[in-house]
Design a protein around this nucleic acid. Sequence first.
DNA 1: TTAACAGGTCAACGGTGTTGTCGTAAGGTG
DNA 2: CACCTTACGACAACACCGTTGACCTGTTAA
Lengths: 239, 239
Amino acid sequence: MSERVVPPTARQRRRPTKQGVVLSEELIVATALRLIEEHGAEALSVRRLGRALGADPSSLYRYFRHTDDLMLAIADELIGRTLRIWRPTGDWRADLRDLGLRMHAGALAHPRAAVLSSYRVTGRAYEIQAVETILGVLREAGFPDADAVRIYHAFVDQSLAFGTLDSASTALPKAAREAETAVWRATYARLPRATHPHIAATARHLMADMPRSSYPAALDMLLSAAAARLAEIRERAEA
Amino acid sequence: MSERVVPPTARQRRRPTKQGVVLSEELIVATALRLIEEHGAEALSVRRLGRALGADPSSLYRYFRHTDDLMLAIADELIGRTLRIWRPTGDWRADLRDLGLRMHAGALAHPRAAVLSSYRVTGRAYEIQAVETILGVLREAGFPDADAVRIYHAFVDQSLAFGTLDSASTALPKAAREAETAVWRATYARLPRATHPHIAATARHLMADMPRSSYPAALDMLLSAAAARLAEIRERAEA
DNA sequence: TTAACAGGTCAACGGTGTTGTCGTAAGGTG
DNA sequence: CACCTTACGACAACACCGTTGACCTGTTAA
C-alpha cells in the first residue's frame, strides 16, 4: 500500500480503464453528484460509483483516501457553485440575506447532496473563499473581530442546518410526504380547544405557516439581532 | 412472512431467548440507547444490538419492521425525556432558551436518532404536547397569534436543524473528527494576510469559536430578535 | 390435554467499505 | 527506439451490514 493517493498536480499517467474511461478527480466528483441527484444520496457507494464510471471500485482509492475524502470534494464543489453566483453590493445586511437565501436554495436544488455534505469542514479552496468573503462583509460593516466570527459562525451553520433540514423533507418518498401533510391536517387541525387551547386558537396560522420553510424568518431574526448589536457597538463608540 | 410485527398491546407470549432474555419493545429501545451512549453512534447496528440483547438479530424484526422504525421509537423516547425534564418558570425567554438547549443536548446525546427524527412529523403524543406548550409560552408572553406561530416555527426548526447538524458531526468516526480540527489548525490558521486578510486578522477567534457549536449564539440571536419584536408590539399597544 | 401460533433461531442473499497483490501500459531517459 | 520505472487499474478477499423465508419450540387458551 504505502501511499496510494498521488497529489492531483502530479498526476500524468492516465491509463484508461478496461471500459475505456480516463479517470480524474473532477470526473469522479461530477459522476458522484449526478448519481446522487438521479438516485438519491443513499445510492452513492464506492461500488456503485465505480460501476457508473466504468471502473473497478478500488481504483477510486487512487484518488481519494476514503469515502470521506470524496464527500468533502463533493461538498466543496457545491459551495463553489453557490459562491460563483453571488455578487455583494456593499450593504452587509442585504448581502448576507441574499447569500443565506442562495445557500438555502442551493441545498434545496441538490437535496441529496446537501444532506451528505453540509456538516463537514472541507478546508478546500471554495470553502476558504467563502469564509474570507463573509468575514470581510462583517468586518467592513464595523463588527469587532470577536463579534464578526461569532455572527459568521451562526450565520453559516444556520444556513447549512436549515438547508439540510428542508432538503431532507423534500427528499422524502412521495408517499411519506403526503402522509406528513395529512398528519397536520388530520391531527393538529382538529385538536379540541379544551385539551389544546393554544393549538386550537392558532390552527389557522399553523396550517398556513407549517408547510413553508421557516428559514427566511429565522434568517431575518438573526440579521436583525446582528443589526441591533452593531447599533449598540456604534453607540458605545460615540460615548 | 406475512405480518411479523404484532402491535405491542397484543403481545403476551414472551418466550425467553436462548440466553434467557425476555425481549420487549422497551428493552430493545433502552438497550439501543445504552449502546449508542457507551460505544458511539456508529456502534448501533441490528446485529450488534442483537448481540447486546443476547438474541438473534432477526428477532428484532418481530418488534420493528425495519431499522427506521426502531430509530423513530428511539426518537420518540428522546422527545419524551426532554419534555419530562423541562420545567417552565414563567419567564418566556429563559424558558425557551432552556428548552432549546435541552433539545439540542438531547440530539447530541443520540446523534443517529436525532438525524432521523428531525424532519419527520410524527403526530404522536409527545410532539403534540411540545407544540401546545411552546405556543402557550409565546402567547402568554403577549405575542399575537401570527407572531407566536412564526416564532414557534423558527424556534423549533432551528433547534432541530442545529441538533441534526451538530450531531451529524459528533457521529463522525473519531479519526474524521480529529481531522476537522486539524484542518482548522493547519489550513486556516496559517493563511497569509496578503491573500486572506480577514481570516488572518481573526484567526485567533476562529480557532476558539469554530470547534464549538454555534447553536447557543444562534438561539440567543433568535430570542433577542423576538424580544425586540415584543417590545415593539407593546409600544404600539400603548400608543 | 392439546392444538395453535407468537416469536426465537438459522442460514442465506446481496449489499457495503477497504486493502494487499499483481500486471501492464504510459512516460521519461538515453 | 528501446528500456526502466512506476502510476494506476483490476482482482480477490475480508469483515461487516440489513433483511427475509423456513423452521422449530414454548406458552397459552380452550
